[in-house]
Design a protein around this nucleic acid. Structure first.
Ligand code: SF4
Ligand code: SF4
Lengths: 128, 128
DNA sequence: CCAATTATAGATATTATAAATCTATTATAT
DNA sequence: ATATAATAGATTTATAATATCTATAATTGG
């Protein structure tokens, strides 16, 4: 019942990028790594997932780096969580007696509330 | 971002006890273990935490076993989660820049929503 | 008191997963 | 061509959850 550190790193890297230059400049992982105190290789691996999910872009080579996409303002915290950790289920029913079960239903409801909260928070909201 | 299996087992054991006899009979872990298909030793270890939290009682020796407390109806799903896994934080801030941070605040809010949902579900509600 | 039954405690082992590193490769600018 | 930077894949390390094992303590009934 814990978010991964990778998600933590990703969110912070994004916040750093947002505060730095918006979507104008390419920022090498080196810079982010320094700011967050995380190894370049690991952070790069994490950010690659955000690239794959198309919330940031990347360019290799000299003067390359990561850059926010135009749509960044509408990306939600949940989007990032999913990009990093995939779609998670809070509750893994060890037995599963079917739909109408109250334990399952309760956990699902709790999970929905959690997810909706995170869906409703856009990255932009985090900057205010 | 997952509830533990132990919590799963505990909830199911409790449901079993509730459906069996309410708070009248002592049920040996053997029975529960059989019903849930979990080893007696492990299940016992899990249930001991529920005993410690005072939601069920236990008596050793022949004719012993676990029994619901009078107050079981008002025990919430969250109570069980805490009894098993302790108070958990969904988000471990790797850096922590303080109170006013929006990332932290968002995660806290999401966590609160999750917890409140589980607090509002009593074991009794699960039987309906 | 004795034997059977049952929970508990503590140590240990097993498994699973996340976190991190390392190496090699590919892409780009100058 | 060289330096820079991302990516991929393999591998290692760390951590926590899950589970088992063994010994001990408590209770019942004879
Ligand atoms: S009681 Fe509900 S949660 Fe438990 S095994 Fe059955 S379906 Fe799953
Ligand atoms: S930005 Fe917020 S979440 Fe990130 S380290 Fe600072 S306080 Fe923590």
């Amino acid at each position: 019942m814990k978010f991964s550190k990778a998600t933590d790193y990703a969110l912070h890297a994004l916040m750093y990028m947002i505060h730095r230059d918006g979507e104008t400049t390419k920022i090498p992982v080196q810079d982010l790594s320094l700011a967050l105190n995380v190894s370049t290789t690991y952070l790069s691996k994490v950010l690659t997932r955000i690239v794959k999910a198309n919330y940031i872009s990347s360019t290799s080579g000299a003067k390359g780096g990561y850059r926010l996409q135009q749509n960044w303002e509408n990306v939600s915290v949940y989007d990032i969580v999913v990009a990093i950790d995939g779609v998670q289920t809070l509750f893994e029913d060890s037995f599963d007696h079917g739909e109408e079960c109250r334990i399952q239903a309760t956990m699902m409801e709790a999970q929905e509330n959690l997810i909706n909260t995170l869906k409703n928070k856009k990255l932009k909201d985090l900057t205010v």
